[in-house]
Nucleic acid binder design. Sequence first.
DNA 1: AAGTGGAACTGCAACGTTGCAGGTTCTTGT
DNA 2: ACAAGAACCTGCAACGTTGCAGTTCCACTT
Lengths: 364, 364
Amino acid sequence: MAGKREGGAPPPAAAGDARPTLKTIAFMTGLGVTTVSRALKDAPDIGEDTKRRVQLIARQVGYRPNRAGVRLRTGKTNVISLVLNTDEQLMGFISDIISGVTEMLAPTPYHLVLTPYSSRSDPMDPVRYVVETRSADGIIISQTRPEDARVRYMSEHGFPFATHGRTETGIEHPWHDFDNVVFARLAVERLIARGRRRLALLAPSPALTYHRHMTAGFAEGVVEGGVTDIPFATAWVDQPIEEIRRQAARLLARQTPPDGIVCGSGSAAIALVNAIEESGLRLGRDVDVVTKQSTQLVRMFRRELLVVDEDFRLAGRELARAVLARIDGQAAEALQTLAVPTAVVGGEDEGAVAPTQARAALSS
Amino acid sequence: MAGKREGGAPPPAAAGDARPTLKTIAFMTGLGVTTVSRALKDAPDIGEDTKRRVQLIARQVGYRPNRAGVRLRTGKTNVISLVLNTDEQLMGFISDIISGVTEMLAPTPYHLVLTPYSSRSDPMDPVRYVVETRSADGIIISQTRPEDARVRYMSEHGFPFATHGRTETGIEHPWHDFDNVVFARLAVERLIARGRRRLALLAPSPALTYHRHMTAGFAEGVVEGGVTDIPFATAWVDQPIEEIRRQAARLLARQTPPDGIVCGSGSAAIALVNAIEESGLRLGRDVDVVTKQSTQLVRMFRRELLVVDEDFRLAGRELARAVLARIDGQAAEALQTLAVPTAVVGGEDEGAVAPTQARAALSS
DNA sequence: AAGTGGAACTGCAACGTTGCAGGTTCTTGT
DNA sequence: ACAAGAACCTGCAACGTTGCAGTTCCACTT
């Protein structure tokens, strides 16, 4: 078994600083390059002690497979691409997702590549680029639309991906989403419980899937509670903060302004409150606002704000988990998770425990 | 004169969906692979019309060099690694830097890879990993320390990098920094102009280089203005927000509390204001706070806050520009930029124009 | 003694690219 | 007419890895 053998090749470079390759280990062990390769991946046709010997030496010399070599040979990139719009920054939003994703990727050989696009260009471009050049093994996208062309494209090309937000394409794909129907219902119920009767909703852009969820939940709550829906369809949470402030000011100057507002994002809520106070109204007395928050800072802004926590870090983790599983060949249907909010924090039950989110698996 | 020549190789794969390589173009043009390669990089020993012909076809078929091939052959990765600490998120901080970096990289062939580390592990690990495995052409790091081991390491290994923040290693390296000396001086001057006489500073952790800058600027201002320095060395802006609030509450409960505070970060300022208001004091009447802000949201939080804008997006752009130039072989000394704040916004000159930052080149 | 079968190991080729060291024409000078 | 040189183009080899198709050797069967 494995007698020492002087290979024909000369010692691969001096002991220098060149990092070890399979060839180096092959030379050190007196084995062939192929054997070393197979021994390192624990192939069944390599002797047990040979494997141990090779693995020991590999560890000793700090061998790490050359990514370019693997990639060229196998096509496997060990890269996840996070595609995101970099010109609108929804506060800590992006960084939390990134944290979650990297946390999940840390113990794997995967790297995270950021693939940005600007609103001025086609959101499809970065996706097409990654798929065409096969520069990643999987993609994560956000800001999904009901008929999302990117989802269709990746799906048709059999490219693994996960989305932050659902679609209505009819395509089964991995996603993670926050339950905005429940959020809006909880928010409306809480406002009603606090005696509010004229409610408005500051929703996301109608182009995005979750616009529908939030407006549906809001509408349900309003109907069941028998209160008035004050239309506020001129502003969306993804608009510039100044614009939101202007629109909110106009809303509050109407003859019948709302006395309760449901708001889809923390930063929008800050603009909202600014407008409220400039209109001479007082938050918590004249108007209540329920908003989503992804950081405790929103609540620090005004103690009177009623908040529902959305955990983007969790989203990042779930999305990473989903793409990896998808790359691994798991069924898309099993990779869909929904974060369901359970309570509104602030207001009367101030003493109550701050609840966080539950995680539920759905089969769409 | 490029006569048509039927090469020995068979048509490389069917017309299928395989993406074109040099071989594909070589077959189409009837040229050799080497010629095509050289023609695409505009080498001098290739005929003008051949070059045009090759480039035309390459564009037609949407040729893109295979990154793994190039990387394996040349060692060039076309990757910039952004090394960051992912468990403390200073608001939009990170995402703004990322936006700036990606903006700068967009027109280049470079990809951005995020290389995270947690506070629990050695900050040196990710840097060592990237350098050892040569998985990027350049590195960007932040949170520099006076004697930064990472800077020393990369410098010794001749690895291109740029840092967000300076060091006191004596090593000439590319950096971008915000002038915290000037910031603190401006802040103190403004507080004095508003009649404040007992000033405190909420600075960054003493481990970081810019702690020295900020405390130095603060001290200068205090001495020149002949006012009192109220020591507040128990809290740093990079502590958890709740901890800052606690420490600030204690500060304000002292026999001689400050009537003016200079704060090194927007989110810390929010905690500060919370503590101020809970102590029964009023911002702008009993105490003034000057803080850095990287997003307009801080100012929306309390109109009474006095702010100095710090543009992290600019920082991202500068850092990217610096690493790229460094990779390109430019001297480190020429790649050092300082963003100097020019004014404090808010308070009496409310009507004045909000100034942004100037960019100055320094030779350390 | 010849044949079979399995365990353990091997070299070759290829992924796409580029540096290198030639080639092959054609033009120019003598 | 012929050497020298310019202008263009080319194979080959190698970067590090792995799939494939062997090869070697030994134990065991017939």
